[in-house]
Amino acid sequence: MKKSKLIVYLILLTLILALRAAAQNTDSLLNTLNSSMKFNKVEATFKSPRLVLSQSTETQKKHDLDLVITHRFGDIGGNFGSSHTLYGLDVATDLYIGFDYGITNNLTVGIGRSKHDELYNLFIKHKILQQTNDGIPLNITLLLQGAVATRTPFANEFISFNHRTSYLIQPIISRKFSERLSLQAIPSYLIRYMTTDILDSKNLFTIGFAGRFKITKRLSFIVDYTLINGLSRPTRLSVAQYNPLGVGLEIETGGHVFSLNFINAEYINENNFLTDTKKSWKNGGVRFGFSISRNFSLFKSKNPDIKSTIY
């Protein structure tokens, strides 16, 4: 009796095995191979390493060089604006020319020069966390920047070289919520050795918020706001300071990114605009600005399968 039962079970087992094997289809077999898991990065949270004011979590691709040219015009309205300066277009409050270079896909170094304070800046940008579609919800990029003001001093302004320097520590946190919407939070700590306003604090803690909304595949609306007043900054200052707010349109054309902005910050570099934004949106202090970035790929691959040629 027991033996026959065993045989019945054996028959059933082989039958199940046989059926399973026969029922296996190509789709389920492909799923067991499952190679798409490796390709889970959520890319292009932003099109550009910079939004209106702040840097974004994007770093350069390995061996890519990005040339950035940014311009800020004068006040549109108020005492310094109106038709006398063609709504600020006669004036350049700041100009920035810089290069970003990708040492690896996650590590970018940059150098730049601003008109304001004749400021030279050096930064490293390291992507620490990459958003994926199967677990990691955020991108985190750490930005460290040092800057030196090289202009001739007024009176005994720069006692030592240290007084010309300022440093920025900025973890940038972003998330691509959907194809269209990406948001970013930018806490920063700025260290300087000298303030133009003696009532101001040397070190500033700020929080920025920025976002991108894609209108079409290549045209995006960008907004960028930094909260400075009301955090570590003293409430009473000799000259009023404002929180920088910028809005803009970003146009991507494959290799170039053009950004057209309206903004109350006069200056371009973080070490300048975080410490010194004396214009507000209310009193005609808003200005037009633009940014052009052009990407170059250096050190081309020798793999003939991916070789591209421009004639």
């Binding site: 798409s36 390709f39 292009a44 790929s297």
Partner: peptide, 26 residues
């Protein structure tokens, strides 16, 4: 003789990495 082939789009590599990003994104 059923044949089933799949390829992850993000696995394509380009000489220019920015072009690769645009291939995927745009």
């Amino acid at each position: 003789q059923e044949l089933n082939i799949q390829i992850p789009i993000k696995s394509f590599e380009f000489e220019k990495k920015l072009m690769q990003e645009h291939f995927n994104e745009n």
